[in-house]
């Protein structure tokens, strides 16, 4: 795994942080998200390996670089350059009021299922996605379970033969 911080031209002018360890991490404002990813794709990042969403509702104070305003939601996209053998991780902050970000479907068709999963479980909307429907949960499900205000939904464990929920 690459330990040094690779120089990536597409990040010029945006807040960039080097993560110690595995990959470069960049914080991109959401209006520039798609254009930066397009520039990265042109810069030999052949594959989008992962898209996921995080809900930072109860995280408290987070250590973010200068100039990045923490918001409730975050979309984390991992891109992989096979020729340069580096990974880059893009973190986009999305406000609670409007958790919408551009879809990468036009650039990387392989993000289709990952974005659907992020919509299903975290409730982030992707503009330009061709089929933003639920993927893992049943169709009539209410809510997005990976949000922090959604309970885990378990049944209390009972150790006696008291009348239970069933």
């Amino acid at each position: 795994m690459t330990t040094e911080n690779p120089t990536i031209e597409a990040f010029e002018g945006f807040a960039t942080v080097a993560s110690p360890g595995v990959a470069a991490v960049a914080f991109i404002p959401r209006e520039h998200y798609k254009s930066v990813v397009a520039a990265l794709k042109a810069d030999a990042f052949e594959m989008a390996s992962d898209v996921c969403g995080v809900d930072y509702l109860i995280a408290g104070a987070r250590t973010l670089p200068e100039g990045v305003k923490p918001e409730r939601f975050e979309v984390v996209t991992s891109l992989l350059s096979m020729s340069r053998r580096i990974r880059v991780r893009i973190r986009v902050q999305l406000p609670d009021a409007d958790p919408t970000v551009d879809s990468l479907f036009d650039l990387y068709p392989g993000t289709e299922a990952m974005e659907r999963e992020t919509f299903d479980l975290v409730g982030i909307r992707f503009a330009g996605h061709p089929d933003l429907s639920r993927i893992l949960l049943p169709e009539e499900w209410e809510g997005h379970p990976l949000r922090k205000d959604y309970g885990i939904g378990g049944v209390p464990v009972q150790f006696k033969s008291t009348p239970g929920p069933r």
Partner: peptide, 20 residues
């Protein structure tokens, strides 16, 4: 402009998953 896919006009059975 961003809506989830809603397609009615399809039999809704107990095991149907609608727009999926």
């Amino acid at each position: 402009n961003i809506t989830t896919v809603v397609r009615p006009l399809w039999p809704t059975e107990e095991t149907s998953e609608g727009s999926q």
